[in-house]
Write a protein that binds this DNA or RNA. Sequence first.
DNA 1: TTTTGAGTTGTTCGA
DNA 2: GTCGAACAACTCAAA
Length: 436
Amino acid sequence: MSDQQLNIFWFRRDLRLMDNCGLYEALRSGRQVLPLFIFDEDILNGLPASDHRVEYIHLQLQQLEKELASLGSGLLVKKGRPLEVFVGLLKDYQVEAVYTNGDHEPYGQKRDEKVRALLESQGISLESHTDHLIFNKNQVLKPDGSPYLVFTPYSKQWKARLSSRDLSPFPSQEMLAHLWKGNIPSMPALQALGCKPSGMAMPSFTVREDIIRNYDRTRDFPALEGTSRLGTQLRFGVLSIRDLVKKAGKWNEVFLNELIWREFYAMVLWHFPHVVKGSFKPVFDRLPWVNGEEAFSRWKAGMTGYPMVDAGMRQLSQTGYMHNRLRMITASFLTKHLMVDWRWGEAWFAEKLFDYELSSNNGGWQWSAGTGCDAAPYFRIFNPTEQQKRFDPEGTFIREWVPEAGSPDYPAPIVDHKLARDRWLKTVKELVSSQR
DNA sequence: TTTTGAGTTGTTCGA
DNA sequence: GTCGAACAACTCAAA
């Protein structure tokens, strides 16, 4: 056991050294800081052998390790259950305090409470900071102290609060000399974690001022480079949200609003964790979903016979990404045309998306299905053919992903649009009227 | 307490 | 082809 007292900084979804709130606070305390990451077995065991997100995290950790090594330090990477890993660490090191950045998801909160209890039983504190969002659970509330349920008033209040919020970066850089200089074993290879390479291209987009400035005009056209593609970096904290919000505020209000949606849904999940399992509005848990396995399979495979839907679904499977416009079209189609439970679709996106974020994915699906807070009205049903005309008028996107569209090799539409539309309208009307 | 206006991203229909 | 209304009623937020 090392006899020198130290702090641990526990990286999770904040895989960067710069402008990292919790890391800065750990370094500022004056003690040396040992950087730690844990591959959580409880999460890994629920994933397939080849998961592109694990691969992405591993890649970012390698980058972090390189940066830390150049500073004379290193990154301690462990695999196991966090609680058990900490039990081991407390034997190996004389830990004074553990610093980290908070997590708004129910699993992360339970995990952190268990770790906190363990540490506190040893007289060690767990210091948690807010880093992945601008505002935490209770910083943007109605005057009566309750959470907002509608986006627009939330966003107004969010912006009002932002104007008095200091977004200057946490100057972690100036403190990096305080990193632990003792021996740190190098991190395990991906295969040693039991994960195979996915063969997918890892997202590595940069913050593009030109794209963000044009965001409101180009974001709806999947054939254009019209969206930021920064979701994955935000999910894993490779980018600082403070930095991005500062730029968004200068560059494009509509883009800033998207970042506020991200915070809105995080806040909703924080206050209403029941949305993980069921509809925000309980009445919609009684929707008589058809849940056809065959239809669901065809949707997943991009074989519905609606080119716009299939293009989106194939883009997702093959790249781990789907353009936002297509996320709405495919989600609307699965829930309203095929009448498959939104949770099925949510789970599929969760498995496939690089940028998967529980709160945003859940919020988006419930919005699409009309079951969420501040959701789309039930009669707002996307017509996949109409959407194709409006947002891919040249057919560029369709040709890229569904080159056989229009040929005999391409399946006939899985459902008739008008019949499906009428069925959905009738179903929801009956549900709502039965409630009165 | 009551009232009033408003509510991400759409589609269809009929004038 | 364009345009406005209807789709549905309810809940939320704020005055």
